[in-house]
Design a protein around this nucleic acid. Structure first.
Lengths: 137, 137
DNA sequence: GATACTATATACGCTACGCATATAAATGGT
DNA sequence: ACCATTTATATGCGTAGCGTATATAGTATC
């Protein structure tokens, strides 16, 4: 079954209400890399705090996104062999990457604002009819 | 130039930070149709309050989405000839459509929650470094 | 040597979207 | 009568991003 990362109080969203936030992993990676170099597998673990599941789908998106970010020169990478486990490709944020993160933050604020407008209107209509809609996280 | 609907205090977003909220028009249409039958062209005008531009791209998505909603039986439509202008296809929300709207509201709350988590972390990091990121709408 | 875990990576198909374009009735101007 | 504009609905085409599945390989554990 195709469960997406849109989990909340309702559980995984159904295909009917499937709604990705497109390319959202990109700003999340930039944010996590800010001031703290890390590699893909570790980043995935930290992405869980931002609502990602760590599914195989997420992993595919993760590695693809990291490569794209490197193509765009907003991160750099280097192979590192630690004391244990296979070698890791460790990523670091560039200055351009930091600037991009700030751009993303503005876009994400704008998107949140749109969701707020929707929910405000929705809740107003619900209240007018004495109905209820659930709670936030 | 390809401007998307992600407008905010920053103006239209650049391709670098292009981030659609996938299928977001669907819940918006359901919300606008709640308790108030309407037709496509009029709905587009009201969608502006929810952050849509009314561009030709939006119009294309609008009419396609309305047809899909009818296929899914969450709205019904009928042609109506008013006193002026060409005939309009007027849409009405079904009970299933109302239920779907409530499902969407939960998903959108979950998405907002993810954006909040991102922005909370972002702003925390900015504050730790004495930097600034702008303001919401 | 077999199994599981850590770690990185890509091919394939689908969906939704953005752009361009088509159609046509009504309206308004000259 | 003619033409432009506005109102109104609709679809074909190409692409970006995603989800699924799969591949590869080093390390650890039993």
């Amino acid at each position: 079954m195709a469960n997406c990362a849109n989990e909340g109080p309702c559980g995984p969203c159904s295909p009917r209400t499937h709604a990705r936030m497109e390319r959202f992993m990109e700003p999340c990676l930039l944010l996590l890399l800010r001031g703290q170099r890390s590699h893909g597998y570790e980043l995935m673990a930290r992405l869980r705090e931002l609502g990602f599941e760590g599914s195989s789908a997420d992993m595919a998106v993760l590695y693809r996104t990291l490569r794209q970010l490197e193509d765009k020169r907003v991160v750099t990478s280097s192979w590192e062999e630690g004391t244990q486990g296979p070698p890791k490709r460790v990523y670091e944020l560039t200055e351009e990457g930091e600037a991009l993160l700030h751009d993303w933050a503005r876009v994400i604020r704008a998107n949140r604002s749109r969701l707020n407008k929707f929910l405000d209107l929705y809740e107003t209509l619900c209240r007018e009819e004495g109905k209820e809609g659930g709670s936030d996280v």
